[in-house]
Amino acid sequence: MTHFTKLLIAVAALGLAACANPEQFGGGGADGAGATAGQGDAGDPTSPAYFNERVGDRVFFTVDSSSLSDEARATLRAQARWLNDNPDYRVIIEGHADERGTREYNVALGARRANAVAEFLNAQGIASGRIETVSYGKERPVEACAAQRCWDLNRRAVTVISVGAGV
């Protein structure tokens, strides 16, 4: 499966896993309340919907790793460009793990992944005051199946756009 197809699946799954925080757009981690409404039109390059669908809101990791692949770096550079162009938005980076680890370790691993993304964005000129990180460990898979296919999609860090320019 190509990365692009994976991304489409992930984006499709995103619609189901919306946010508890009504000011957040997208994100795979939060609880069921809220909606994808307010993301705007993906045709509008300044909309969170555009960020989620065209820029790409997530990067993937290999097993037990928080290293950013070349592919991930390319996605994050695009994210950074978008965030530089749209300074009214903040981000929360959600780190996630697949289910093949213990609960506590996976929370720590997700924190490490989220931090790797946050540091990369920061190095690309996004002020650290605009970036928060959270780890969901293995608590919020985008896809649940007992197979590599799902685990690959679940080992991810998702950049969730929220309102507010930050400090």
């Binding site: 928080s66 929370v107 720590a108 924190a111 490490r112 931090n115 780890s135």
Partner: peptide, 9 residues
């Protein structure tokens, strides 16, 4: 307990 900051726990 565990505390995570800056990717370190």
């Amino acid at each position: 307990y565990s505390l995570s900051v800056g990717g370190t726990t």
